[in-house]
Design a protein around this nucleic acid. Structure first.
Lengths: 334, 334
DNA sequence: TACAGTCGTCAAACCGGTTTGATTCACCGG
DNA sequence: CCGGTGAATCAAACCGGTTTGACGACTGTA
């Protein structure tokens, strides 16, 4: 590959002149600039990333720390990764995927060697060990999700508490008094993911506030057991007029179960859930739902870390994005 | 961060001695080695990746070129990405995700700037424009998937032709004479993905060879239409004794449809498909199936590109990995 | 007319590694 | 006792960028 020295020689100027022309940090005559441009085109010059990083201490690279959590619903995860990558690109960054089994080691590796300018943490748990590694690295970092002690790092997440409340209120306002809450498998709760708890608790709190009787059912982790759990919940609470579903698995099985039992939505049963339109590409889920809006959350997170790279002294921000509810007509007044 | 100069000073030696101790390229006395080790620990030294890349022209980074193809089934994609990343890590590489809308531009960007030592192309199409970019970059590259003209690059893929043949033979050997072949949505065929065609054609060829009557049905791209397409296929071919399913969407809907119609597998209908056990985490698909084995295919691909980075002159290889069939008892003799 | 300021450019130093050539010393074989 | 060999180390050059200080030529102003 051509170096800046080759370009300088071709254009008949010094290396520093080429550098200045490229960065615009010093005035360069129009004529010289043109000769340099021609040289760059002729030699197909592209700056060497390593050399640039060495000289500037900037890598134009973000580390994406993807935790090892097999239980998570995969399609959603991929969406997050893609949006991180696309947003980063818009802001001039590349993305280094860090999938080390031990996230802390991964963070240490890429920050200590100055491979990245900042890191993005996916699937943050309430007591996330990785946060300490980011602080130790003294590099910008942003959390996608909320940790219990996150005062030191920027973080963004959907306001899952608001999401839970709005689902409950949506049902309460329509006169529902007895609702089945199909929450995530217990395995998910053990993973200590903040949003899992925040949604769960806000639903329960708001139900109490609204005077709504809630039957809480944990969905099965194993898809083979899912249908049975779901059916059991319906059997156990025959007077429930609505379902509030967080578990995606349950949402997938629900149309089947309901059609088997000749239960019509919303005539016999109202359903409200929490899932994004990315499922529309794979499953036809015709339910009124709160959207997790990964494009908004993730894009904001990437912008935040990019801002902090530019200005490390900016005060820490912690954003909870208001969730959007899409009414697909799967609930009715009772 | 501490530099190699800091370590040298702390240990009372020259920078080159530290470098030699680290690389082992020159003999260093035991005593000096120990002092250097202590210095490294005390100062928490980690080599700067940019400087190392500049000096050695090696980045220890692989570019993962993920094409923009929204129609693809997302969970499968994520699995490929994760396996690339994990295998790369085992071989000492990091992974730079390149998701540019224009894959060629992405390849040019990361190779021209010497950001990566080699690239891995996911979802290769039969006439993949990205191949030209890899060749132009003169950097090692490996294709996951088969292109029509791939003589110049290493490539690995599942032997989808063999997969198709083995599914057909599995049914033919059990006496099935009339089979419904639920193939992928036409949209997938338009994407020009090699494996889509290879499987499709091998099934049709082998059916002809085996004297098996095949009804070919393209699954619907829109999940809302899927059930209808599936039902229509069953109605149109009432004498079919078996289903051969490539479309994952159809596989997901199949248990529902069959239970609605009180069709028992394998008593009333034999079913064989093509899907991996990653679906087991999300859906309970109890069908005999050929496994796409991404861990084998992808891991092999990453090894290939790593080998070529070490030895660029190694002859080009093109590997088709024999697929494995898992008998889950969803087929019977007729 | 002299002086200051700006424009345009270059040479040199620096970023943090690796690699090479030179040097010193100990040991070995003839 | 001498020449050769290998171990152990250092200084210097290099990789390809950026940044800084210096300098000559202009321009505008007092």
């Amino acid at each position: 590959m051509a170096t800046i020295g080759d370009v300088a020689k071709y254009a008949g100027v010094s290396r520093s002149t080429v550098s200045h022309a490229l960065s615009g940090k010093r005035p360069i005559s129009l004529e010289t600039r043109q000769r340099i441009s021609e040289a760059i085109v002729a030699l197909q010059y592209t700056a060497n990333a390593g050399a640039k990083a060495l000289a500037t201490s900037k890598t134009s690279t973000l580390g994406l720390i993807v935790p090892y959590t097999p239980a998570e619903f995969a399609p959603a995860r991929m969406q997050y990764v893609m949006i991180v990558s696309e947003t980063a690109r818009e802001l001039g960054f590349d993305v280094l995927m860090v999938t080390d089994f031990d996230g802390r080691a991964g963070i240490k590796r890429v920050t200590d060697s100055s491979r990245v300018d900042g890191v993005i943490l996916l699937n943050v748990t309430r007591h996330d060990e990785r946060i300490g590694s980011v602080l130790a690295a003294a590099k910008p970092g942003v959390l996608i999700g909320l940790a219990d002690d996150n005062a030191a790092l920027d973080s963004v997440d959907l306001d899952f508490a608001a999401a839970g409340r709005s689902m409950v209120r949506h049902l309460a306002e329509r006169g529902h008094r007895r609702v089945i809450f199909v929450t995530l498998p217990t395995e998910m709760f053990l993973q200590d993911l903040g949003y899992v708890w925040r949604l769960h608790e806000s639903v329960i709190d708001e139900a109490q506030t609204a005077g709504l009787a809630l039957t809480v059912v944990h969905d099965a982790a194993d898809p083979k057991d899912r249908m049975r759990v779901l059916a059991g919940a319906l059997d156990a609470t025959p007077d429930a007029t609505a379902l509030l579903v967080h578990s995606v698995g349950a949402l997938i099985d629900l149309p089947v179960l309901l059609s088997q039992r000749r239960i019509s939505v919303p005539r016999d049963l109202s359903v409200v859930g929490l899932f994004g339109d990315e499922f529309g590409a794979m499953f036809a889920l015709p339910y009124t739902a709160v959207e997790p809006s990964p494009e908004v959350v993730v894009s904001r997170a990437v912008h935040l870390v990019a801002e902090r790279i530019e200005d490390p002294s900016r005060p820490v921000v912690q954003e909870l994005l208001a969730p959007l509810m899409v009414d697909r007509g799967s609930t009715r007044e009772v």
